[in-house]
């Protein structure tokens, strides 16, 4: 669990790290939409080059991207097998006994894999280079216009930042409880079905208790310091859009527009 890297912030100093979170969020959204526009392999090639370039620019290693991909591999293999069984278009590629694999199945799987890869690359460019707190500041700002129609922008941002803050704590807590119960003879790996149920209960119950306890403590601590949702407040950290940030926003949307045009003129 400790090696789970998808969505982890990597503290480095790069031009991408220094961009305004709002600019990065808008750019990421634009690129994610672009991934879902069927602009053929040319479109994907363009997006891939941009994403790879951003990763280089943010000094992340491709090994990191690979690690983020790893949890998905089983799913992809499953997907490939399903496609092989279901899709019967194109020409026969190979025949194994009764089954034939069609080119259509391979192409379809490749499309999905490439999309997934692009999505992971693009989101990683955002999550790995933006501190969770900056991210929530950005989200709050971007939601501000919606707060006019009753969307609780600040509360949503606060919710997200608290959730992010507690993920590592909860992982650690889970490990701790697991160890304590293992000391009492719980066997998380081996054991009969009924034993497994008891094992899971002995983990879940304390985890819930402690999560509620933490939530309660935090709520009290926040209230004790005068926090009231919906109140007007100033900010400790004020975000500023600079030239590079505007360029990122305009550039990302230009790429999106380009991909849409490409999809239109494609046969």
């Amino acid at each position: 669990m400790g090696n789970f890297v998808l969505g982890k912030y990597i503290p480095l100093n790069s031009p991408v790290h220094r961009l305004d979170p709002r600019a990065k969020i808008i750019a990421m959204l634009a690129f994610l939409i672009a991934v879902f526009i069927p602009a053929g392999w040319i479109g994907y090639a363009v997006l891939f080059v941009i994403a790879a370039g951003t990763i280089l620019l943010s000094r992340l290693s491709f090994g990191f991207i690979w690690k983020s991909m790893k949890p998905m591999i089983v799913m992809m293999i499953f997907l490939f097998l399903m496609n092989c069984l279901m899709i019967r278009t194109g020409e026969v590629l190979v025949t194994l006994g009764k089954f034939s694999v069609y080119t259509g199945a391979v192409a379809q799987t490749l499309y999905i894999v490439v999309r997934l890869l692009l999505m992971i690359m693009i989101t990683t460019c955002l999550t790995a280079t933006t501190k969770p707190l900056d991210m929530t500041l950005g989200i709050e700002d971007l939601l501000m216009p919606a707060s006019k129609i009753g969307v609780p922008a600040h509360e949503i941002a606060m919710l997200i930042s608290i959730a992010l803050r507690f993920i590592p704590d909860l992982i650690e807590e889970t490990m701790r409880i697991m160890k304590a119960q293992e000391s009492r003879g719980v066997d998380m790996k081996e054991g009969r079905f009924s034993e497994k149920i008891a094992a899971i209960l002995s983990l879940i119950v304390p985890l819930f208790v402690s999560a509620f306890q933490r939530a309660d403590d935090l709520a009290n601590a926040m209230e004790a310091r005068g926090y009231a949702p919906g109140e007007k407040r100033t900010r400790y950290k004020v975000l500023h859009m600079r030239a590079a940030d505007w360029l990122t926003v305009v550039g990302a949307n230009a790429v999106l527009a380009g991909v849409i045009v490409l999809a239109r003129i494609l046969p």
């Binding site: 807590e173 701790r176 409880i177 160890k179 304590a180 119960q181 293992e182 000391s183 009492r184 003879g185 066997d187 209960l201 002995s202 119950v205 304390p206 208790v209 402690s210």
Partner: peptide, 29 residues
């Protein structure tokens, strides 16, 4: 498991390991 029965380890702040409905049930776990 056998080893863990012979070496009883009590953690720092062990109270979070309680989970059964009653104290007696928990201790006999």
């Amino acid at each position: 498991k056998k080893l863990r029965g012979e070496v009883g380890l009590i953690f720092q702040f062990p109270e979070y390991q309680l989970f059964e409905e009653t104290v007696l049930k928990d201790v006999s776990f």
